[in-house]
Write a protein that binds this DNA or RNA. Structure first.
Lengths: 347, 347
DNA sequence: CTGTTAGCGCCTTCAG
DNA sequence: CTGAAGGCGCTAACAG
């Protein structure tokens, strides 16, 4: 394919050295003279030598490739996470190969199946919504390839995980609604099989208990995570005889969907219906009224996940860790109940 | 690193065959009996054999890896493009390795320098804003690694390129403003060294000429591509003695920035100041008033770029192609001038 | 400190 | 149709 590439052989010939010496010079081995090393390095630069990673990988049984599998990269959270992953991967000399599942379990399976275990050193994964491929992941780990789960975590696998502090974030969010004067707080949630959903719902319920606010089954909807799901969930909620006066959405996309529906129905956001999200997608600050939300450290989630994975890669028996990253309440107009403030904010 | 992996040797031993026969069976070579082939394939499945890509790559001097370098992946356009790239790459058995430059030319250079030419089969690039690394890209191409440019294209390099129809898109956008009754149309533009910027500006100017509308130097601002740039550009425009009554922004992010500034200044969007963008970022439909824009086929841009690259990879002397993808006008409220309509739309 | 040798897993002649 | 042998570029013992 390519025109002839410079190899260590060429350098060795040029310098009248053996290939092993040249190889040692590159790897900064302890047993090369400073002089030889310099000669090799300058010659390499002159010849524009580039190491052949296939050859190195073949011999060392490693690849410097890390695979990332995630549902999508077109939303704020995932694109930011993967940016964080890429940053630390790049700085440590690892290539990031990514696979998007579009939340299709079949696609997930096909990716895992095709994943040649010899072509990656580690695997970073955020599962699909309905993943039941626990044993496949387990097999990969058993085979010696480290796996780290982030955001969406399959319980029962002994490996490191990185998540947001979903429970406390939800608690904070609903506390904020309660303190802002809302009494009948609904929750539009996500797929309930996921830890992220369960923890946020748990935080929601505990906050209600803490403030002695009513808990009603019909005020909790369970669907997907998309904007459309949010739009639909609002219509469901409004069918209740006793209508809620605030909504805690499992994420910003659903919150924004909810706001869109409310606008369509001419229900005043904040005043008549408080809305709070989770993520702090940049859109929350652009939409009006601004969406109150729990900011999530997406970039950190990415970089920490990658760091953990790299540690698993370098230390054979690195103890699995569970990282929980704290969120932060960002107050905007969607949870301002008092009328005159709403007026002031509305554009 | 990994526990022992199954190799063709294992299969050969198990089946009492030579490794070369096994190898042939996998590659569907013409000279293997159907029977042997089947035996090999079933044994491979049974043993859970996975080919070692390093070894194959070493011998064939290829890697099945494609590198993508782009400024960022956290905005709609780029994340969608890369999704398109990944889709066709995955379907053809290529891994996508990506590098983000954050629009830093230094980072770009470091990425190109570190890019081992033997570790990728092709290179998909969207340059940084101020890239002056033409000769580096040229060297990569001369070295035998195909390169395809998308979106931001460095002129003067003989290779395939994929762009939107920036000229006609801009023409359409400004025509729409003119037909909607705006008379003094400003343009908040991007970095002028880029073809994309130049073409959009050309479309803008030609539309003004066509409708015999005034062209004024001070109504054209040149800065970056970010939302903040858009916010600032509006303040610049409003310093003009003769203020414009509409803005054509080089992209949606700048248009949204502009809208945010206008809202802050209580200038009614649409009625007092028309705004039109370029991209059709999903936010354009969420923000209110909705942003009129030129929709750009981002997913197509990605998949077509990747297809072109793969063609360059497989055919040594594939004739470079320039692909221009058409845009589409999406009318929303930000270009509705008549008062009552604005009222109707405002939430 | 340096050179020699063998081999990583696979493909590709060249003989049978 | 199948097997044997050599080599892709590099590293890792083992000698000196």
């Amino acid at each position: 394919m390519h025109t002839h590439c410079i190899t260590i052989k060429d350098i060795a010939r040029e310098l009248n050295l053996s290939v092993s010496t040249v190889s040692r010079a590159f790897r900064d081995a302890y047993d090369v003279s400073q002089e030889t090393k310099e000669k090799v390095l300058t010659m390499a630069a002159q010849l524009n030598y580039k190491p052949n990673f296939n050859a190195i990988g073949l011999v060392k049984n490693q690849t410097n490739n890390i695979a990332v599998m995630l549902p999508s990269i077109t939303n704020y959270y995932f694109s930011t996470v993967i940016t964080g992953i890429q940053e630390v991967g790049y700085s440590k000399g690892y290539n990031i190969i990514f696979y998007v599942t579009n939340d299709s379990p079949e696609r997930e399976l096909s990716i895992i199946r095709n994943l040649s275990l010899t072509s990656i050193d580690g695997f970073l994964v955020c599962t699909t919504l309905n993943s039941d491929h626990r044993e496949h992941f387990q097999k990969i780990i058993d085979n010696g390839t480290p796996v780290v789960f982030f955001d969406r975590v399959l319980p029962g696998i002994r490996t490191s995980t990185v998540m947001q502090d979903d429970y406390n974030g939800a608690l904070q969010a609903v506390e904020h609604l309660a303190k802002s004067g809302y009494k009948k707080i609904a929750h539009i949630s996500g797929r309930k099989s996921l830890a992220i959903t369960q923890n946020r719902t748990r935080g929601y319920l505990d906050a209600l208990k803490k403030f002695k606010l009513p808990i009603r089954e019909e005020w909790i909807t369970q669907s997907g995570f998309s904007q459309e799901d949010g739009e639909n969930d609002v219509y469901e909620l409004l069918k209740c005889k006793d209508k809620p006066d605030a909504i805690f959405a499992v994420n910003d996309r659903k919150a924004i969907g909810a706001m869109l529906s409310l606008k369509k129905l001419k229900i005043r956001i904040g005043e008549e219906m408080g809305v709070i999200g989770f993520t702090n997608d940049p859109v929350s600050g652009i939409i009006s009224p601004g969406l109150t939300t729990i900011a999530v450290p997406a970039l950190d989630a990415g970089s920490k996940s990658c760091e953990l994975l790299l540690r698993h890669i370098s230390k054979k028996n690195f103890e699995p860790q569970e990282l929980i990253l704290p969120g932060k309440l960002i107050v905007r107009e969607s949870t301002v109940k008092i009328r005159q403030q709403v007026e002031a904010y509305a554009s």
